[in-house]
Design a protein around this nucleic acid. Sequence first.
DNA 1: GGCGCTATTTATAAGTC
DNA 2: TGACTTATAAATAGCGC
Lengths: 183, 183
Amino acid sequence: MQKQMGRAKITIKWIPRDTSGNMTFMKRKKGLKKKVEELSILCGVEVCMVCFGPQMDQQTASDHPHVWPGKSKALEIVERYRSLSKEEQENKKLDNSSFLEQRIKKLKVELSIKRKENRELEMESVYPWDSCLNFFTDEQLKDLVDYIDIRLETVYDRINFLSRHEREIYNGVESDMVGFCSF
Amino acid sequence: MQKQMGRAKITIKWIPRDTSGNMTFMKRKKGLKKKVEELSILCGVEVCMVCFGPQMDQQTASDHPHVWPGKSKALEIVERYRSLSKEEQENKKLDNSSFLEQRIKKLKVELSIKRKENRELEMESVYPWDSCLNFFTDEQLKDLVDYIDIRLETVYDRINFLSRHEREIYNGVESDMVGFCSF
DNA sequence: GGCGCTATTTATAAGTC
DNA sequence: TGACTTATAAATAGCGC
């Protein structure tokens, strides 16, 4: 019967660290480094890898560490990762969701500011001016009301816009709102 | 002419991130994760990987990060690596060279101590005792000289041993000195 | 972006030196 | 440990959907 030359199929499970196990580690680590390097070059991405050598046995601590593509670069990449916010670290869709989340926050703040402004405008338009109405001619009052209406319209438009987009963003609809938010 | 179906040979160089480049990144990242996982299982080692997605273009920051085998485990492994001393981080042959370096330090200290002891012994054997010589019989003096000779021999042996191994270690010769250093 | 296909290239398990 | 060999398992480039 012929011996099994060449690559035999193996199942992926723990190989005790005898000679062959160690051989496997060495070979595969080498192959892995090559693949990491290829990915890095092909796609121009920052990749790093940290790997501790296999344990001799259950008592002995594991072997020395292997890092790719080198200590400083690896730590730099990890530091870049660590410096990200929890959301940025966790969410796969960083470029979308994080951006939108920040946008939502900004819009909420703007919205509350505008609502407050609006309340103030409404207050001003109703109460304090009441006592001053006698100082104006009818013509002036008409102009004033027109002016107020226009102002209110603008304010309501703004409220509507913000509300609408707040809803759209919550629904995950990315409208082409970017660049349209200048009042 | 037949189209190139199946795997074509590629040279490892930067692929701009158009559709195919992105495809390559996705496929290879998937393959890489698989290989990392296999290494981890086969050899029972701690491996982690951090990879930032490819840049859209030179202006845009690169994509969201990919970590393996997951945020917390990856950071744990990196932390373990960071907690190592500089020597342990740098040296590939931690188990050898770092061990030997520490051994060298110890040997140097021992050597200087022994040299000092030796000097002191020589001093003691020559000067202070001179004035005491009259207190001893010839027989006693003979024993004393023998004793001193034996002591000196031991000391010189030790110096020779230390010097020899100091030289061997510097020359990178790993003799089977471990376990032989008990005086 | 993902999945399937397929021809090829690569990676590599086992063995030898 | 490392280098080379061999036969075979896996990964994957280039397409199409």
